[in-house]
Nucleic acid binder design. Structure first.
Lengths: 236, 236
DNA sequence: CGAAAGCTTGATTCTACTCAAATCAGGTGG
DNA sequence: CCACCTGATTTGAGTAGAATCAAGCTTTCG
């Protein structure tokens, strides 16, 4: 069991759950495109950013807060594809209409650029197309990794993957990573029930894989942390 | 149980499992780009088309046969993202290197175009970029639907989704859809063990959801077939 | 015909789900 | 400041679905 946890480190740990963002390797032209926009009015918790099927005439960059990107099946089950965080973009993987719904987890502020503006910028500089393609492909790869996490790993390991990912792309506060989302939301993201999420938290705490002073603050301990991800370097 | 099967029809049935192809709505310029290429020498069953990580300097279109697009995790588990069929393309969702492995399920023949040729064609006609983007986004959407199938549905329903998809994009022979892949491969695609795949086949046969005169030939019966997909029209 | 590979079925085990209850945390109003 | 309410989380008990282990069976192919 512990063995399995360690085995999976290198296999599935490289940020799986990132949903709708481009992050560190974001091309400069893109960052500057959003930089001088005024933030839109804040969206309250559970507020809707946009709905699946609506025309996607804007692109967004998150200034603060967390967004859940999801769809609801006909049976009413929700799949959260990922949580978008400050700096992340929304809209590159949508052509005419949104193919998922975006809702605020907590209070969210955004900057936006119209799609026509983006297309204008691109058409002046054709080499930028490759950057766009890369953003979409990165997202595709992330989905494929998420698919593997969900179909290969069992609950404890799934949660650990999620926590690693959160830790890797969120600035810790006092050494702890904050979780703005509920157990239900984590479950809808990782394909497990909220009870199983909770039990897995308890299990990881018992195994000393994580330290959790409160239900929404955690830190990965030692061998289970981000360091484990970079173990490739040692091997190489 | 039967109820559940019917419930999921409209929700998850729109071709989930298609992996690496552009199909019916393929732009004409793309089809013509490949049309006048000579087919490469055939690849035998289980032969490797290309390997995850290798430089992706070619794009392929399948002339005949079936390809499995997959990756192997460190623990040795295989995830098949999809089966590519005649007419499907490989390579649009890869930038510099392949991000998955492609292997022949049966004997496969391909046509290929070098990436530099494609880029040259595109740079002369910038509006084609949108077509490329659409191909990649379509693939992303397919992965997201596959994620939902795997995380929401149980084994019988998962298999039914797979069979619907196969039936929808394969030309039937004598009214039956052929399955060139093994139970193991279906399982690696749909996130279930080969035994569970087999049991689900048996279960669907017992429920009269499918007719199967042999292990690799099936037909969806009545309410479970493709017609069910178009039930939207009736509702609308 | 025999071997090998693929498929089906059975028995058992285990994981995670459901239903249910208790606990905890935050916010409100008295 | 405290009691109370609400929503979130944790924990417990029981169960169902699918995985695993283990035979048989069928089909294909040399």
């Amino acid at each position: 069991m512990t063995l399995a946890l360690i085995d999976t480190d290198s296999a599935l740990s490289r940020s799986n759950t990132r949903a709708c963002h481009a992050e560190a390797s974001t091309p400069e032209w893109l960052r500057s495109l959003f930089r001088d926009r005024d933030p839109l009015r804040p969206i309250p918790p559970d507020g809707i950013v946009f709905l699946d099927g609506d025309p996607a005439d804007q692109l967004f960059q998150i200034v603060s807060g967390t967004i859940r990107c999801c769809t609801i099946s006909e049976e009413g089950r929700r799949q959260i594809f990922g949580f978008a965080r400050p700096g992340d973009f929304l809209g590159f993987s949508d052509l005419d209409t949104w193919h998922f719904t975006a809702e605020a987890v907590d209070t969210v502020t955004l900057r936006s650029v119209s799609r026509s503006t983006l297309e204008a910028v691109i058409s002046n500089e054709p080499c930028l197309h490759k950057d766009i393609r890369r953003i979409i492909v990165d997202e595709l790869v992330r989905r494929e990794q998420q698919l593997m996490v969900i179909s290969f790993l069992q609950s404890d390991e799934r949660l650990l993957c999620f926590l690693r990912d959160q830790a890797a792309r969120t600035r810790p506060v006092d050494g702890f990573t904050l979780l703005p989302m509920t157990r239900q939301e984590i479950g809808d993201h990782m394909g497990m029930s909220l009870e199983t999420v909770s039990r897995s938290f308890t299990s990881l705490k018992r195994k000393r894989a994580i330290v959790m002073p409160a239900a929404n603050r955690f830190r990965l301990s030692g061998a289970f942390g981000v360091e484990a991800i970079t173990s490739d370097h040692i091997a190489a």
